[in-house]
Amino acid sequence: MTIPVFYTISDNYTPYAAVSIQSLIDHVSPEKDYTITLLVQTISEEHKKSLENLSTANVHVNIFHIDDDMVKPIHNSEENYLRGQFFTMSIFYRLFIPDLFPQYDKAVYLDADTIINTDIAEMYEIDVADNMFASCPDLSIRYMPLLQEYIKKCQGIFPAEKYINNGVILFNMKAFRDKHFVDKFYYLLNKYHFDNVDPDQAYMNEICEDKIYHLPKEWDAMPNENLPEFENPKIVHYNLFFKPWHFADVQYGEYFWKVAKNTEFYDELKQQLADFTDADRQRARDDLEKMAKKVKKIEQEQYTWAKVKEFDDVKI
């Protein structure tokens, strides 16, 4: 038996994915077998080899190319912009993992900006019962009134604290397939064109709202200036704008650099940090204000999740 782990990346995210995968490899059990699959649309041959070369005797790293037809219904339009600022198709790939890999009834998904500090088998072995998936509540929004407002008024999820972050997922793959998640996703995407600040995450929260197992917070520890660091986080997730290759003083940053120094991308990542100016860092923080404006705009839309849930059976 193998423990399947998935990442979804664009080519430029290869260095961060490599560090995440290395952190995972550093903690695996020699008595277990692991298969890591990275879903991409395009990737350079150099980056492909770099990732595949991370493989060990019991960790097998593979590249899987997403069929363009599968994501064709997802348009590069403002409603699908991440954080209301730019379009990236790779965030949607995770929604198709259960259908693309029917040989697995269970699997782990990780964002590329994560560091794993324990054997990922520990997460894989959690019993999610009949829930669609397991994830942690999104602590990056806990002290951000504008996003709390978005979850309540636009998403219609109460309390807002139950809203999950889907950067770390334990999929009940069989339940996703049995409940035809992808069909529901396509239906809602094409019928309502929901405007979201977190498109992929919104669809998972909404379609699966009452079938989500909440993991302990240590499985998705995120930098948050309003919270002290968790002791011994199992997974660190550099969510939103707080990347250690941009901010030298970011919470949990030491976990990233401890692993990064043992990868071929260390010098490149250090250079990225050096090249990221104070003006760049200020622009990153200003992006939060742009999100605020986006939330106000979404509240006025004809169709929001909160409005549609009053008359359409969008839940599973």
Rank of each mutant, 00 (worst) to 15 (best):
V308L: 05
F265I: 00
A274M: 14
D313M: 15
D278G: 07
K294V: 07
V295M: 05
K261N: 00
A260H: 00
Q300F: 06
F256S: 00
E301V: 11
A274H: 09
V259C: 04
A284Q: 14
K258D: 14
E301Q: 15
K294A: 10
A292R: 02
A274L: 10
F276G: 08
F311Y: 14
Y266A: 04
R285F: 11
D312T: 14
A274R: 11
D313K: 15
K293E: 04
D267P: 01
K309E: 02
F276W: 08
D280A: 12
K258W: 05
D267N: 04
W305P: 03
R285W: 14
D280T: 09
T263S: 01
K294D: 08
Q300L: 11
L273D: 07
K307C: 03
V295L: 06
M291K: 07
I298G: 02
K270D: 01
E310C: 06
E268A: 08
T304E: 08
W305L: 03
R283N: 11
E310N: 09
I298S: 04
D280G: 10
L288C: 05
K270L: 10
I298V: 08
A284W: 08
A284F: 14
D286T: 07
K309W: 07
F265R: 00
A260E: 02
Y255P: 03
R285H: 11
L273P: 01
Y303P: 07
E301T: 14
E301M: 15
Q271F: 02
L273E: 04
D267I: 05
E289L: 15
K270Y: 00
Q300S: 12
E310P: 02
T263G: 02
Y255A: 06
V259A: 04
E301C: 15
F256E: 01
L288A: 09
F311A: 05
